[in-house]
Design a protein around this nucleic acid. Sequence first.
DNA 1: GGTTATTTATAATGAACGTTCAATAAATAA
DNA 2: TTATTTATTGAACGTTCATTATAAATAACC
Lengths: 183, 183
Amino acid sequence: MKSASKKEIIMDTAESLFYQHGFHAVGVKSILDQVGVAPMTMYYHFQSKEILTQEILKRRGERYIQFLDEKINRENSLTTYVDSLIKAHMDWLKNDGFNGCLFLRAKQEYEGINEEIAAISKGHKQRMLNTMEKDVQLFGASSTVGKQLFMILEGITSAAQISSLEEVEETAGILAKNLYTDM
Amino acid sequence: MKSASKKEIIMDTAESLFYQHGFHAVGVKSILDQVGVAPMTMYYHFQSKEILTQEILKRRGERYIQFLDEKINRENSLTTYVDSLIKAHMDWLKNDGFNGCLFLRAKQEYEGINEEIAAISKGHKQRMLNTMEKDVQLFGASSTVGKQLFMILEGITSAAQISSLEEVEETAGILAKNLYTDM
DNA sequence: GGTTATTTATAATGAACGTTCAATAAATAA
DNA sequence: TTATTTATTGAACGTTCATTATAAATAACC
């Protein structure tokens, strides 16, 4: 399956460029040049740049959730769950860079322009929020704690664009420590 | 000064469009069309789209800080300071919509492309963080509390793109309530 | 070996991009 | 009033945009 490989390389490269500069800021040509393929190779696999964008977002959403699932500890206490979740998210940022959340950016750029892309993006965020709300209830905490956790993770992603990961992780840890004291 | 008026309308319109869709997603023509002026009217006041972008960001930064300053209570306790700051930020979001932070978006779109724009954007965020760190020290709290507050505000701005303002405000309020309990 | 699937190269498409031209209108100063 | 600067206009510039056309070459599959 050499074709699958080319398709994946195109997706990888485009995802990286989109994350670095944004969707509208990155032209198809720059993706093609960086991969080293002819235009029709891309259009053979993806009907358009926007379809490519959709597929990238779907794949990234699954990858992120799987990445977290492998690292989250849902077996012990709320404390260990929260700590493992924050740690996992920090690990993701470490691998991925510090340019914010690609889903929020996609939603921002395509709301009112391409509703499919906006829906995929918003859907992913909503799914993450829902997951956290349900997860904390495993430990008897209210869904409000899940909302707080979600807000902390969003704060981490934004703050990481200004401050170092170490500083951000420490700050988030303090916030999270006081999350569930008033249960 | 009829010209000052036109210049301001161009800035207002462009700022609104940039905030809705992003910088690269909005063409000069769409700004011109919405304002109802000829290209040179814009280029007389701004040497380029990127210069226009810079001026918009600078102006917006000042406006945001002034908006907060008028509403923040630095006279009483840490609690009232924190509450007033969060409330002020919520008010800003209410007036401005829920499309994230324009400064973070500018930094994301222009880092590696236009360093001046990236610097203005990052500078604004850094300035906000510094201000909060100094402010909380007025009440004897450590700068860490300021970092936490900054992270909460960032979390608010992101979460507001998924959930309602009321829900976000409540969640942030709970987070903030436990901010300073371990001083 | 024959068929289908994938990729190449090159060129061209029309539309949109940011920007500039040359001319004029409006405001200001002499 | 005239002269000069300031502000604005519509048309046009060259470039890049995403996409497609065409045709040939390579690879994978049965």
